[in-house]
Simulated assay, not measured.
Amino acid sequence: MNSWIHNIFLPNLQKPESVSNKIYESLLEMSSDTSMESLFKTTPLNDFWRRIRDEYPMLGRMALNILLPFPTTYLCKTGFSTYAATKTKYRNRLDAEPDMRLQMSSIKPDINQLMKNKKQFHTSH
């Protein structure tokens, strides 16, 4: 399986069935590198595999190819759920794109600042 991606520094690392002998040699070399082990312990998993790509390009590429589909699937499902919640039978003519952009954005608006900049055009209201 791909358990080596989650912890390459386990003792008695067995050769995964899905890797070639050359990649397994790189795995063994990396697992004996103490500086890599300390980096692994102090860095999030995706960042670790991204950082080691220069020194171990095959391992880094292989690990990231296995790890990356999960976040992209999550974002796709989140987008579809947002779309389904926005575009209901009562709002079927609605252009959902601007609403979805707001709902899916990670930027949080500063409401107080927006209200300070707002000018009232109608004095009667």
Rank of each mutant, 00 (worst) to 15 (best):
N7H: 10
F9Y: 09
F9A: 04
P11Y: 04
P11Q: 04
P11K: 05
N12A: 12
L13C: 08
Q14L: 14
Q14Y: 05
Q14E: 15
K15W: 05
K15G: 03
P16A: 10
V19M: 09
V19N: 05
V19I: 13
V19A: 06
N21M: 01
K22C: 02
K22A: 08
I23F: 04
I23Q: 09
Y24N: 11
E25I: 10
S26R: 07
L27A: 00
L28Q: 13
L28I: 13
M30W: 05
S32Y: 10
D33A: 08
D33F: 04
D33C: 09
E37Y: 07
E37H: 12
S38L: 14
S38D: 15
L39P: 01
F40E: 07
F40L: 06
K41S: 15
T42K: 08
T43R: 00
T43W: 00
P44G: 07
P44C: 09
P44N: 09
L45T: 03
L45Y: 05
N46M: 15
N46E: 12
F48N: 06
W49G: 02
W49L: 04
R50T: 15
R51N: 15
R51V: 02
D54A: 11
Y56L: 03
Y56D: 06
M58A: 15
G60N: 03
G60T: 03
